[in-house]
């Protein structure tokens, strides 16, 4: 033991010195540093959790938004379809109305033409009768009974194909 150098004062000094170092490091190093490290890891854990919840929240709201957008799109589609339908119907109606109007106008015009034609024929007939009587007076050289002659001419005209038929 002596040759190895083991002696009680040396051993006790070593143990006391080591214990002192243990206490120094415990209070100067481990306690404050472990505290800081634990705090930091707690903080990191917390912020990770916060980030996780934020991510979930974002995911959720995005899904919601997508749903809303989808709904809005469907609604818009429906609205467009409806509008198109309405427009189609409107067009059909307008078209029918216009056609009707055209038809009516054409009928009116045809009636007008017919009336004009009848009036023109009437006038022509009158003039022609006058002319015929005048011509006859010249030929005969005397006045004819205008009334009877006019009746005669009317009859002839009625029978003729050109100016007859007041249809």
């Amino acid at each position: 033991m002596e040759a190895l150098g083991i002696n009680l004062p040396g051993l006790v000094t070593a143990i006391v010195s080591f214990t002192a170092l243990y206490l120094i490091l415990h209070f100067l190093l481990y306690k404050p540093l472990l505290n800081v490290m634990d705090q930091r890891s707690a903080k990191i854990k917390e912020s990770l959790e916060t980030a996780q919840t934020a991510r979930e929240e974002a995911q959720r709201s995005r899904e919601e938004m997508e749903k809303q957008v989808g709904a809005a799109r469907a609604e818009g589609q429906a609205m467009i379809a409806q509008a198109r339908e309405v427009a189609e119907r409107f067009r059909e109606e307008e078209l029918a109305k216009a056609r009707q109007e055209i038809e009516a106008q054409r009928a009116r015009a045809a009636a007008d033409i017919r009336r004009e034609k009848a009036a023109a024929i009437e006038e022509l007939r009158g003039q022609f009768a006058g002319l015929a009587i005048t011509a006859a007076e010249r030929v005969v050289g005397e006045s004819v009974d205008e009334a009877s002659h006019r009746r005669l001419i009317e009859e002839v005209l009625d029978e003729s194909a050109i100016l007859g038929g007041r249809s």
Partner: peptide, 28 residues
């Protein structure tokens, strides 16, 4: 116990302790 003598290894051990204590103090 007998005699107490400060040996050169004790001095070295105490130096190591002082160095560690100073580093810990500076670091924290």
């Amino acid at each position: 116990f007998g005699d107490f003598r400060i040996t050169n290894t004790m001095v070295a051990a105490w130096s190591a302790i002082v160095v560690l204590a100073v580093i810990s103090w500076l670091g924290t």
